[in-house]
């Protein structure tokens, strides 16, 4: 019973996602390889050399236009390391883990 409902739910979700990806940019007549005209990316491409004197636009986006995302990403890595160190540290009960 549960399995059948799960499969039905999966089918519904996949139908919605398929519909979404087909529908996504339909009004422009293009799908993959022909994205919608985005002012944002054109702005980045045109101005990254002006603002940041940098050749790699992706780096400019990473560290200037969306710098806070990168800080958050580094924070994610930092918290994952803290989590791993916390979880895998020597437990009080078991003595064989030595470090």
């Amino acid at each position: 019973m549960k399995k059948i409902i799960a499969v039905i739910a999966l089918i519904v979700i996949s139908a919605f996602l398929f519909g979404g990806v087909v529908e996504m940019r339909n009004q422009d007549g293009g799908g993959f390889g022909n994205p919608v005209e985005t002012e944002m990316d054109e702005y980045f491409l045109e101005n990254s050399q002006d603002h940041n004197q940098v050749n790699n636009v992706v780096t400019a986006v990473l560290f200037d236009y969306r710098g806070l995302d990168t800080l958050g990403e580094a924070t994610v890595l930092f918290s994952a390391v803290s989590g791993v160190l916390t979880v895998l540290r020597k437990t009080i009960s078991s003595k064989e883990g030595e470090e």
Binding site: V61, L62, D69, T70, E73, V76, L77
Partner: peptide, 19 residues
Amino acid sequence: MVLPTPHALTLTSIVIGVA
């Protein structure tokens, strides 16, 4: 050139994924 923003987003999501 292709759009740069999704590349930056994907880099972030890859690192989040490994973490």
